[in-house]
Design a protein around this nucleic acid. Sequence first.
RNA 1: GGGUCCGUGGCGCAGACUGGACAGCGCGUUGGCCUUCUAAGUCAAUGGUCGAGGGUUCGAAUCCCUCCGGGCCCGCCA
Length: 700
Amino acid sequence: MGKGFSERERRGADRIGRTAFMGNPFAEFRDECARLVKAALDREGFSGEEEVRLEVPSDPSLGELSFSTFALAKRTKANPRAIASRIAAAAKEETKRLVGRVEAAGAGYVNFYVGIEAFAEALIRSVGSEGASFGSFQGNGERVIVEHTSVNPIHPIHIGGARNSVIGDCLSRILRAAGKDVRRHFYIDDVGLQVSQAAYGLSMLGGGITAGGEHAGRRLDHKDEYEDEEGMGDKRGTGDAAKERHKGDHFIGFVYASTSCAINIRTLKARIERLKTEGKDEEVREEIRKLDDWVAVSSELRERNAETFDRILDGISSSEDPEREVAELLRRYESKDPKAVGLIRGLCETAIEGFRETLGRVGIGFDSWDWESEIASWNGGAREVVERLSGSGFTRVEDGTVVLDCEAVVERFGLREKYGIKTDVPPLTLMRSDGTTLYTTRDIAYTLWKFQRAEKIVNVISIEQKLPQLQLKIALHALGMGEDAERLMHYSYELVHLPGYKMSGRRGRYVTFDEVLDEAVHRAYREVSERSPHLGEEERRKISEVVGIGAVRYALASVAPQKPITFTWDRVINFEQNSAPFIQYAHARACNIMVKAGGGWKGSGADYAALSSRYERGLVVLLSKFPEVVGEAARSLRPEEIAEYANELASKFNLFYDNIPVLKAEGENVRNARLHLVDSTRIVLSNALALLGVKAPERM
RNA sequence: GGGUCCGUGGCGCAGACUGGACAGCGCGUUGGCCUUCUAAGUCAAUGGUCGAGGGUUCGAAUCCCUCCGGGCCCGCCA
């Protein structure tokens, strides 16, 4: 898309694309073309022109790169077509290495074609010698923290959170390939009001949700569930009853939804009574609508697990003031009261255990799990932020709360234009009247912590938090850390919607990542069994895991992050073209050829000049672009570019596969050249998939 | 209401930061291709006023302005 992030934010992402490459035949070809154009311009008397810009022609038959003469023609009042022919003619006089042909074409273009013999050999050498690291390069070792996922430990990771995880993980892989020293951080928001609410509900069940507790007793075996039922197509945002019984994060999600539901119903009822006595009919109707919504939620929840729901409901009904008790629990947790710590930490540990299981299954790991309580709360970090900001003169005290006047900071440091702010930035409440801190305050403390460990920070956080992330930067300026703010990026992405409604953790309405993965693997298994009945059961299971999970990862990584996604099973689990399985299949085909070829061909001669068909040329050229694609994806932080590249490469390979015989090629040296090409394709497909965190099976 | 992001064939997307040669791809629909390296493939046909209107430019899906439609945000939630 390219519009999602400002140029300022992109600069924050660094100019990785300009870093020196190890083996990069296409960059060499590009340099050679530029040199030819410059030399030709000099010969023809167009001296002192600025940097030569080359474009990729719209049609491969027009060459691999082209130079357009329109701008030059405009300046010199000459005919663009005539300039093009003069440049082409002059360029033909120069010595060339990777450039094969130069031609004038169209109304004013000079087209450059690779000389396939030299170029293919250069490419195949590079890929062969670099192998799995072809496409990645040495960077400056700059430390980058990528914070991603960071879902609240009060419900399982749903499909929206999964988008965050996959994007964050792909970004980490791509930045690492670009030579950054990447650390992946998960921020555990254990201090918030929501966690306290979940823990409060949990306390009504007498604790005990971890292994050995009453719910763990009904643990199901994963395998049983596999063949459980034909499909889960009718399950929509109602949770997964089986998972709720055996996976802690799912159970916590249920407890949290039940608690927030019970509290909301109770609060709304009280408010409606009060409004009625005050005769505010309009507002009464409004509140009744909200109540109706929550009553509907309550019956959904009750249907899932009546016993647990009723116990929570009873507990909350008999409480004098549940909202106050939740706030009290949070206050006690922030002051590290042992009982509160035991309760909340237990809940969080259980939830995180569930996250680890889910994320581990899709190959997502972290270098650091950062507890908000430890980094921002118990060590006084957030308190210190409040104090330092108070000393900055930009805060005021309102009704016992401490508030940061963001607008004043924006004015003082001239941030309006810098951050594209067109309206007033709302003030940020830093501290509640009961002395507890708010999320963004703790996030400021966390950010200071991160800057002690890295030069750059990328926060993968949904678009919903755009304003608080801006306020965070503003707060850094207020602290005199404006330069650090420049090295902090909010990498935002749009939400995943469900067809009828928005996902809501508080309402327990979400499609979990676990159920999507289960369903994907289930469908992949059916697919594999149908297509490859000759494979053994064990291998079919393995392949379906890789294929199903790859499909989900690809679906989430391949859509530009600033586009909202509406969840449908068919969309997230696709096995046809433009999917991970399509790419994996191309890889498996390439592997198959290599297996059948054996190893004897490697040392013998190869005729690279024979790789002259449009299929082979196209493949060679596309392979050679991989390093630049990686550099570009890293520069612009766009994993979807890798996805698209991999898809295009698979597509080009399929064309080659269907049109050009390899094992039955005529002539030993031609066969060898093609085998080199297939092997290079295999390696690059595998490297590209690796950047997306997708495994490349050798058979499917 | 204000801000912001998005709007490309029936559906889902790429192309936009960095303007260039007839706007690509998938799904769908219709019709072909497995005695040749895996048909999760491939070929052909079908289908688009690039939301609308202005402007800048030799040239605009791309840059600028206005408008229309949708997502998101505007809390002592996160």
